[in-house]
Design a binder for these strands. Structure first.
Lengths: 194, 194
DNA sequence: GTCTATAAGCCGATAGAC
DNA sequence: GTCTATCGGCTTATAGAC
């Protein structure tokens, strides 16, 4: 049973880890955001790694919630994959300023040689596995994972360069090109259906 | 005229900034690597920002040197662009462990809101401008920059996922696919030449 | 140019009162 | 559950001897 304070700590840490980076965020920063003392903070989380694990767990949950939303909104696999492709536009303002939350965290944890690296990678896997399901439903079971990884790589490349150059026209162009690529993989199914 | 010690500091800092990240690397870490005292260190660089600027300048120079090497080895624009595409294989072992040196630095500096961010982005620009030249030479002047950005985004997407998943087969597959894509853009020129 | 010594402050983490 | 007080260690950076 998470207390309200614990939940507020996780939300503040999630935000600060994204905007400032994990290593650069101190306990004092998080405590200040939640308006509690550092002593109180340690009542809820004993180590920094503990709160990182809680933050990543929260991100996994919110990722799954977003995916369920896409599934409710879009009945076809093509429409659902399109939702993923368009994240780089949907979250464009944040990505331009702070990059992709998933990619920048795994990059940082890799350099820190942090034990939570595997857990952070699993956020990527939530997207990867779901995209693989969608491409399987599109009738490309044999190469579904390969296609999922390609779409994932697209999102990371666009996010990194949007963060570096701040060029919105580039993002729009790449999304358009990727959507066109997707439609060629969907035609296969359309031809088979009446 | 850079002294030998100054040069050794820059090389050690370059390596540590890449492997551990800029923020996580301390003066003591660099001084320890070079086997000098912290006091001596401050004789050469007064602030951490100063050494970061020197490191980025060194990276720009080494990037230009690598490009000159490609130009010597490959006479055609297609061959030269292929050299860039294959970096993710050439530097595969380091990328798997620490990510792309350019992409991870810009991501970190963006979060730190660091004044050297613009300078770090210019390392990307060295690649971008050179790739634009190559695509112009291939006969695609109108969309040369767009094609350059696509190849750049490819490298960043592959590097981030290689760092996250450590899947070498994925890298090989994506490089092969990108080389095939490149050859379709080169055929245009081949048809015009006798 | 290179060193030791040290300042001033922030870090994660703990103890114990209420 | 929340607080204050505090520890030991590490940080950037400076002063000054050699």
């Amino acid at each position: 049973m998470p207390t309200a304070t614990r939940q507020r700590i996780i939300e503040a840490a999630d935000d600060l880890f994204y905007r400032r980076g994990f290593d650069h965020t101190s306990f004092a920063d998080i405590a200040g955001e939640v308006h509690i003392s550092r002593g109180n903070f340690y009542h809820h989380f004993r180590t920094k790694d503990e709160i990182l694990a809680a933050v990543i767990e929260a991100r996994q949950a919110s990722t799954r919630a977003m995916i369920r939303l896409w599934e409710d909104q879009e009945p076809t696999p093509e429409g659902r994959i399109r939702c993923f492709i368009r994240i780089v536009i949907t979250n464009g303002a944040l990505i331009e300023r702070y990059g992709c939350p998933v990619g920048t965290l795994t990059s940082e944890l890799a350099k820190l040689d942090h034990p939570c690296m595997e857990q952070a990678r699993s956020v990527f896997s939530v997207f990867r596995d779901w995209l693989t399901e969608q491409f399987t439903a599109l009738g490309h079971k044999d190469q579904a994972d390969e296609l999922a990884m390609r779409v994932l790589a697209f999102s990371q490349g666009v996010a990194t360069l949007h963060n570096a150059f701040g060029d919105e026209a580039f993002v729009q162009r790449e999304v358009g090109s990727m959507e066109q690529w997707l439609s060629t993989y969907s035609e296969h199914l359309k031809r088979k259906e009446p």
